[in-house]
Amino acid sequence: MTELLHDTAQRVHPTDEELLRRVLTPYRAKRCEYLTSAEVTLEGDPGDGGRLTAACSFYIPESCYIDDTGHFNSVEFNICFNQMAYYLMAKAVKESLIEPFSRWTLDQFWQRQLADILITDFKSAFRSAMSGRHFKGRIEVVDIAEWDANDLRDALVMLRTRAQYWDEHGGESHGEISAAITNPPQN
């Protein structure tokens, strides 16, 4: 369902529960489905100065890989980022929000979700520790570069993103993450 806000030409997409469940499927067996809601907003075209963002909520009942450290750490930062990014891309495919995702089918996305989406650059900063199990997050697509295949390199989609997390106790962390999508569908 899409809600058009008149003044800002924003398109806001509330959490798509069914899609969220499907995106988090690979995390279910490991019991680390942290992303609980994601509201996607498209404003203009990220390839041309616009913004695609997702405002997210998280809940980490217990860490999936370590005893309770008492704070949000970089591994969890990364897992939460992946979940936000996967959901945002899936929603962009489903709703035809931006190129190149608007040309893909959801089946094509599911086939590539794990094997073909790779983080190529990851910077994170932890300004003040987040202690709560409940917190908020936000991902923004800063730029999308769609590279054609040629003799020198296979086709590639590069995403530059910014991510931020915060909780109600003043905890905050943020980062800049680039991801590559190899083997993009040639639709």
């Binding site: 390839g47 041309d48 730029d143 999308i144 570069a145 769609e146 590279w147 054609d148 590069m158």
Partner: peptide, 10 residues
């Protein structure tokens, strides 16, 4: 270093 195909085509 930050130019994209889109900005090239534009």
């Amino acid at each position: 270093g930050t130019l994209t195909p889109r900005r090239l085509d534009k």
